[in-house]
Amino acid sequence: MNIDLQTLQNSYASKLGALEANNTLQAVQIDQLTKENADLKKQLEAKQADTAKED
């Protein structure tokens, strides 16, 4: 069985790089969604406060 170690190493490095990039992207998306969630909660609370004032 002939394994080209350089090819194997390059493939591994490429896959590892892709996984790291994907992980970074997911972290950024989670941060954005967390901020969006906080904004939506504030909007909801403001609407609930307005509704309570009307009642």
Rank of each mutant, 00 (worst) to 15 (best):
G17P: 08
Q43D: 12
T51P: 00
T34A: 09
S11K: 06
K15T: 13
K35D: 13
M1F: 09
E54H: 11
E54G: 04
L5E: 03
I3P: 01
L33R: 10
A49V: 03
T24E: 07
T7F: 07
T51Q: 12
N2E: 08
Q32Y: 08
D39H: 07
L33Y: 13
Q32D: 10
Y12P: 05
I30F: 11
N10R: 15
A38W: 02
L8E: 09
D39K: 08
Q9H: 08
S11F: 03
K35R: 15
N23C: 06
T7I: 12
E45M: 04
T51Y: 13
E20S: 11
V28A: 10
A49P: 07
I30W: 10
T34C: 02
K35V: 15
L8H: 04
A52N: 05
K53F: 03
Q6L: 12
L16Q: 04
A38G: 03
L25P: 01
K15Q: 14
D55P: 00
Q6A: 14
Q29V: 15
E54N: 10
A13W: 00
K15H: 12
Q48I: 12
N10G: 03
D31C: 01
K41A: 09
K41P: 06
N10S: 05
A46T: 05
Q29P: 02
L8N: 03
Y12T: 15
A38I: 09
Q32A: 08
L33W: 11
Y12A: 08
I3N: 02
L44P: 00
A52S: 00
L33K: 13
A13Y: 05
I30C: 05
K53L: 03
Y12F: 15
D39P: 06
L33H: 07
V28P: 00
A18E: 08
L25D: 11
K41M: 06
L5F: 06
I3L: 06
N37V: 05
N23V: 04
D4P: 01
N10P: 02
S14W: 01
Q26R: 12
A18V: 10
M1A: 15
E45N: 07
T34Q: 15
Q6E: 14
N37W: 00
E45G: 00
N37A: 07
S14T: 06
K42T: 05
K53T: 11
K47E: 08
L8F: 04
E54M: 09
Q6Y: 09
D55M: 10
L33S: 08
A52C: 01
G17W: 10
Q6G: 12
Y12V: 14
L8Q: 05
L8V: 07
Q48E: 13
E36I: 00
Q26G: 09
A52I: 04
D4A: 02
Q26H: 08
N2K: 12
Q9C: 04
L44D: 01
M1G: 15
L25T: 15
Q43G: 03
